[in-house]
Nucleic acid binder design. Structure first.
Lengths: 139, 139
DNA sequence: TCCTACATTGGACAATGTCTAAGTCAAGAA
DNA sequence: TTCTTGACTTAGACATTGTCCAATGTAGGA
């Protein structure tokens, strides 16, 4: 984690208690929290941190490329700290938890040129959906 | 379109003016509207139609499998009437418009078994992102 | 230590979606 | 055709998620 903080400082980030806490929350577990969950966990360590700051910080981390924004359903976005490994997501349709997965081949190559309609295509996300073992056992 | 209405009636749908209008809006152009856009267009033909009804009807069409719900960014969901053809989406990162695209091969096969972690994987969505020609010209 | 530009705060606001109670109506029954 | 009834619609309150702003605080360089 200090890696991350060092990288950020190197890019001119001013290092505040709030930003440190947000970064620590993201780095802690390898889960994909929503902004509100990040706020809740950050509040445990720094009770006066505001929602706005969490949103700001997450937004900055995303635009710096340190964190990926994942919106799988129409609900809250989730934040994925695993930005430095190329990966995709496997989502449980019932409980919403997300796992990182790694694919064979490059999904970009599956889109033929004539199907690009003049777009400058720069990114592809693949999301698998299913029922996780835990939910599957419950039903 | 009467196809769609017939199918729905066959499944016990009560056919109301509101539902007819929503179905017509979706079927009209081959665009992917948000719920609010559907409401706006439906209102042109049936001014007193309410937001709640549009949301209800869209939800029903989705659960009947007649329409696909697409949530590409964290913003409003869009509704895709092209549910009977297997396809994926190409989204403009700037203006949010969506095109249907067709892929080479089956993206499901790109996910190796050991990467499925016991999930019963049933669905995969692939979303390409880029800048559309129109937005590209504007910048 | 002091400055100052940048960061944080709290609360208002916006966008999207859900829910409910009361009224309305489509379609089968008589 | 008219009646009846349960499904449908409505308006608006409410919930969730996210953005914005003016006032205040502070990290880090001079």
């Amino acid at each position: 984690m200090s890696d991350l903080l060092e990288r950020l400082r190197g890019r001119g980030w001013r290092l505040t208690a709030q930003r440190r806490v947000v970064a620590e929350v993201l780095d802690g577990d390898h889960v994909h929290y929503t902004a509100d969950e990040v706020h809740a966990r950050a509040s445990e360590r720094l009770p006066e941190i505001s929602r706005a700051t969490v949103y700001n910080t997450l937004g900055e981390l995303v635009s710096l490329g340190e964190v990926i924004e994942v919106s799988t359903d129409g609900r809250a976005k989730r934040y994925d700290p695993n930005a430095h490994h190329d990966h995709q997501h496997l989502v449980c349709a019932r409980c919403g938890t997300i796992r990182d997965v790694h694919l064979h081949g490059d999904p970009l190559s599956a889109l033929p040129m004539p199907e690009r309609y003049g777009f400058e295509v720069s990114e592809v996300t693949v999301t698998y959906r299913g029922i996780c073992p835990t939910c599957s056992a419950k039903s």
